[in-house]
Design a protein around this nucleic acid. Structure first.
Lengths: 337, 337
DNA sequence: CACGTTTCCGGAAACGTTTCCGAAAATATT
DNA sequence: AATATTTTCGGAAACGTTTCCGGAAACGTG
């Protein structure tokens, strides 16, 4: 397992180490001929510069770290794909870690990444009421960080976000303009800012039409959570005309439970989801859902980060990404499945 | 952005650099008292050993590299999660890269990881008829590598695989024992060994019951591919009694197309999928499918790798993981959805 | 041809650790 | 009390690069 080093090729060439280094880092004084000969020799010897030594001397890594809360849903993998694409194109390597929704492991991960001299970070917070001191310190030390999806207002850093408010508003409006009056919102944890925004959009859509907003019920992201809340509604015999869920998974859970209890979707009850999953168009009935530009989120975050690293921009930016409402049968009886 | 180094704490303590190093690497001679004082001082100064310098001197990184072909389906993210879990528990850090089903980028990724002194690799090949010279070289240089899911027989390395043959056999048998005689297999690329195994299982199940195996049709992993092949069958008016698809997505595509053309599932046509996706139980009708222990695959691969790295094992092992057939309404009319 | 400029290259320090070697101090042995 | 052994530590080399500094050769200029 002997790696061939810069010394080996210097010896083979009968030249100094620094000359070989120059051949690889084009910017210094070196004769084109010797450069070419060195490169050829290096090639034939199978020499590749050791990035670790380079990191040590240059005090930077060309690595960027990414931390996401989970890997269960398709959302974060897609964002990661998007970020990967632009980072690789700029010769950065990405190290992905997951916090498992725990901010202790999140903190551990960040520190590890910083120790490893990452040039920047892309982060979706595990929770948003956590202690932010370490992030504040990093930011004051000028570490480039871009947050996405789950962010904290107090942090003066670049962020890429989805227009949760607008699309919750539109989704609700889509129901109201069909004459629906009683809508229940299955909302995710209110400590997450996007959940708050969706709730606000849901309510404001009602106000626009001079309606009282329906209740917002606490509901996790999972199918099981959707089933649980739907069952509670059935038990209380308090069936709304429509359900607006903050995630597709909980929407699907609700549909499943209502169907099992004899309700027909969309005739007895309409359902709209959020954050379009692959499932949406394949379930019965196909689910109306707001789709987020997941890979675009990743790309944008990476682009922002690279700009910060390469000092093309200094003030933090927040970019809001747009989405789309895919209307399907679950919210409109006139559409045939 | 000034990092505090080992020299800083040595100066602050009035001792030598080596003593500080000893305090952190417990194994050397050092007085317990001085050790404690050094550790306290380091803590208060916010010193953390620089992993890059350590990598350089130790010629190893405590990183392991993982390469997967894609991030689209839920399969690989789940495997990654499993591997992460055990690697983190052993203080290894994981670097994930995707090859995008291209072996050129796969090769580029492997080389980058090797340059970065990863201690080992976990790989699912992008394609299996590729040039394996570089892997052979790495293996002969004793680089620990574990392959999973998509492997190459020629490579004498550890592998973790699913019992594709057996479960294709059982899934087919499940249809045959219900009196079904004419089954079509939607098979994935035959260059993938697991595809071959599934085909063989499919055929052998027929032989066991003295039936002629139905045709195996080439079909990709996607919903669209399933739709395409189903449409071809309809166009030829050559409708089988059942379909055994090598992926859930193609099974779903087939179901969708058949339903749209007036066929009732499972009454007119039964369908079985493979590699259970989240979708399986939520589509209409719920899809019978073979489920793979995805996270277990990742865990096992990581455990194998760590054993190799830490020299607890020398000969390559192949571990076969078992699965389960989840029978649902799509293959059995007697089950109510 | 003497001089200044430019081009090209070698030497050596530096990055932050680990670890070998040997020495001093402490302790044990006779 | 003298010697042998152990404990604890400091010095320095090493890992593989980059880059500053200065010098030699090549070139141009008058």
């Amino acid at each position: 397992m002997k790696h061939v080093t810069i010394k080996d090729v210097a010896r083979a060439m009968g030249c100094s180490v620094s000359t070989v280094s120059r051949a690889f880092n084009d910017k210094y004084d070196i004769h084109p001929d010797t450069r070419k000969r060195i490169l050829d020799m290096a090639e034939s010897m199978g020499y590749r510069p050791n990035p670790i030594a380079r990191k040590l001397i240059k005090q930077r890594s060309f690595n960027i770290g990414m931390i996401v809360p989970e890997f269960e849903t398709a959302f974060f993998p897609k964002v990661i794909m998007g970020a990967q694409e632009v980072l690789q194109a700029h010769n950065y390597q990405m190290i992905v870690m997951q916090s498992n929704e725990s901010w202790e492991t999140e903190l551990k991960n960040v520190k590890m990444l910083v120790d490893n001299m990452v040039d920047g970070l892309i982060i979706s917070l595990s929770s948003e009421d956590q202690n932010l001191d370490y992030y504040q310190e990093l930011l004051s030390r000028k570490m480039p960080i871009v947050f996405f999806n789950r962010v904290a207002d107090e942090l003066n850093a670049s962020k890429v976000l989805f227009e949760d408010y607008n699309w919750a508003f539109f989704a609700t409006e889509h129901l109201i303009t069909q004459g629906i009056k009683k809508i229940v919102h299955l909302a995710s944890h209110e400590k997450l800012s996007f959940a708050k925004n969706r709730i606000q959009g849901f309510r404001d859509a009602h106000y626009k039409y001079r309606l009282d907003p329906g209740p917002t019920l606490n509901c996790g992201f999972s199918v099981e959570e959707g089933e649980r809340v739907a069952q509670e509604l059935i038990d209380k015999n308090d069936i709304p005309e429509a359900i607006f869920a903050a995630s597709d998974l909980s929407a699907i859970g609700a549909i499943k439970t209502f169907k099992r209890n004899g309700y027909r979707i969309p005739h007895d009850l309409r359902v709209v989801g959020f954050s379009e999953s692959r499932l949406a168009s394949y379930i019965e009935p196909p689910l109306t859902s707001v789709s987020q530009p997941t890979t675009q989120i990743g790309k944008t975050a990476a682009e922002l980060l690279i700009k910060e690293i390469e000092n093309e921009v200094s003030v933090p930016q927040t970019v809001l990404l747009n989405g789309r409402l895919n209307v399907r049968a679950s919210s409109m009886p006139s559409i045939q499945a």
